[in-house]
Design a binder for these strands. Structure first.
Lengths: 218, 218
DNA sequence: CGTAGTCTTGAGTATCCTCAACGAGGGTGG
DNA sequence: CCACCCTCGTTGAGGATACTCAAGACTACG
């Protein structure tokens, strides 16, 4: 299964319509992925900056004991694939059907950055955002009960989804994925959702569409 | 209690003795902190890039429920204080007596970066390192048992400590700090250490000096 | 409409948390 | 110099929470 390619579907980066950005866009290309399809494998060296246009993806790895851990969910406007020359190697897989990903070859990025100083600044901001996500994640994992973790997760997704109504979240991923993201079992995720429903903190609109009533657990 | 200031004690950054780096060093200053002394508070806007020269610090915050969470331990060569214009605000406190911190005012950094292109690249690398730490941390928190978390923590510290003998770790922080870092109770940290000792995975040389025999839990 | 994947719920077990007591080490003052 | 205190670390007992195994309900898609 090969990703479908095109040159349209550019991610609009908020407040960044600079000349440098446009120059970068000219070297980008867009690919389409099916559900569970690998966007890049754990042993591939990151040769490009990638950005989700539509859909969602999970950045994950499999531990020695066979458990899968998801270190980040990637939503539209999120960049990834950079800075992967470190110890841990992750693979990225599409979570929904279809997921559109825009790709910017690393050498082209650096080439453009040489003549456009503000682009490097933008890249720095993008890295800061990824760092910010990771820190927020550490805090979510640090919560005590499963219900708190799940609620914090829902709030995080609602904030990151850029939807009109922030109290309604549409989850692109399965319960399994949430479980591996929060480092709890899928059954516990389900039970936590039921508990949150019972205590009126959330309401289930659809199976993956949730209305958040209380953002803080009382 | 005021931090003591001086202009010596420059952090040697491995493989980065470039002209840009030297230019940056000229605008840096070094401060000394006592144990538990605040290096910067959670509401201060980060106006400088900071780097641990000697000692250690914890990046933490206090949750609504009164629990303290440590999102990162900062060791010599680690940079921090940047990218803090995001949602969560952390305070940084010295963990050992004394801790030396080198400070580079943000506007000076940006000024130097304008004339030294490679400096921005270095800053990018520094941010990647922080991101890498955060991801490693998510994986540690995702481990199942307390013993696994504690062992993974010890291994992380041994890798980051740059000591000659990597099998021996000298922990600069108390059990409480480890507990808040791993999101488990201090008693559980103690019990996990005892268990690891019993199963011969580690040996306690001193109260805060540990020899790691098995890096992977069998 | 059937099948496979996803989600929920239940029962029993293992792990961790809380409360509590105790021991070891370091600093201070008599 | 020693007694005292305070912090830090360890260990125990009981209760709460999450995990595993298992079965059943729901959903999506062919």
């Amino acid at each position: 299964m090969r990703p479908v390619c095109s040159t349209h579907a550019v991610p609009e980066r908020h407040g960044c319509t600079s000349h440098a950005w446009l120059a970068l866009e000219s070297v980008g290309s867009t690919r389409t992925y099916a559900i569970n399809q690998e966007i890049y494998g754990k042993d591939e060296r990151a040769q490009e900056w990638l950005c989700i246009v539509t859909g969602a993806a999970r950045k994950c790895l499999v531990l020695d004991d066979g458990r899968r851990r998801i270190v980040d969910f990637l939503l539209p406007h999120d960049f990834f694939g950079f800075g992967t020359r470190n110890a841990h190697h992750f693979s990225v897989e599409a979570v929904v059907q279809p997921t559109l990903v825009r790709s910017y070859p690393r050498d082209h990025v650096e080439q453009v950055a040489e003549s456009h100083l503000d682009l490097q600044q933008t890249m720095q901001e993008i890295t800061f955002e990824a760092l910010s996500r990771a820190h927020a994640r550490v805090l979510i994992l640090g919560r005590v009960t499963a219900a708190q973790k799940v609620l914090a997760f829902l709030v995080e997704m609602s904030v990151r989804s850029f939807s009109v109504d922030r109290s309604i979240v549409t989850l692109p991923m399965a319960r399994d994925d949430i479980a591996d993201y929060l480092a709890i079992s899928a059954e516990t995720v389900s039970r936590a959702l039921s508990e949150l429903k019972r205590t009126r903190a959330i309401t289930l609109i659809g199976i993956r569409q949730i209305k958040i009533a209380d953002r803080h657990l009382h």
